[in-house]
C-alpha cells in the first residue's frame, strides 16, 4: 500500500488544501478535487467522500464558495467556485497554513548533533 498520511494529521489541513486548489483552478467539481489532491500529493492524501462533501457544503453555507450545475455525460455535475469573499478568505487561510508549516518546519528540523560541534 501507498504511504498515506493519517486522517488525524490531515484534519485541519483539508480546508486550506481545497481552498488553494479552488483559488488556482477557478472552478472544480468533487471528483476533480479528489483526483487533483491525490495526484499532487503523489497518492499520499486520499480524500474520501465523507471528508470532501461536508467541507464543500460547509464552505457553500458560509458563502465562501458558490455552486453551478451543468449536465455532463447524462448527469448533473456540480461545480464549486470561490466567491469574492471566499477569495479573500482563501488567501488568508493559505497564508495561515504556510506560517503553520514554517513553524512545524522549525520544530521538526533534525536537531544539530551537539557532539560534533565540540571543539
Amino acid at each position: 500500500m501507498k504511504n498515506k498520511i493519517s486522517s488525524e494529521l490531515l484534519k485541519g489541513s483539508l480546508k486550506p488544501i481545497i481552498l488553494k486548489l479552488l483559488k488556482e483552478q477557478g472552478r472544480m467539481y468533487g471528483y476533480e478535487i479528489t483526483q487533483q489532491v491525490e495526484e499532487l500529493s503523489k497518492g499520499k492524501i486520499v480524500l474520501t467522500y465523507g471528508a470532501l462533501y461536508p467541507i464543500l457544503h460547509k464552505l457553500e453555507n458560509d458563502e465562501i464558495v458558490i455552486t453551478e450545475q451543468e449536465i455532463v455525460n447524462n448527469r448533473t455535475r456540480v461545480y464549486y467556485k470561490l466567491t469574492p469573499k471566499g477569495s479573500e478568505k482563501s488567501v488568508e487561510k493559505i497564508r495561515e497554513m504556510e506560517a503553520f508549516l514554517q513553524t512545524l518546519g522549525i520544530l521538526f528540523k533534525p536537531s544539530p548533533n551537539v557532539g560534533l560541534c565540540n571543539t
Partner: peptide, 16 residues
C-alpha cells in the same frame, strides 16, 4: 436528499 448532495455523489460515483 440534502441540498445538492445527491448530484454531487451521483457524479462522483459515476466518475469513479
Amino acid at each position: 436528499n440534502y441540498s445538492h448532495l445527491p448530484e454531487d455523489l451521483l457524479d462522483h460515483i459515476c466518475c469513479d
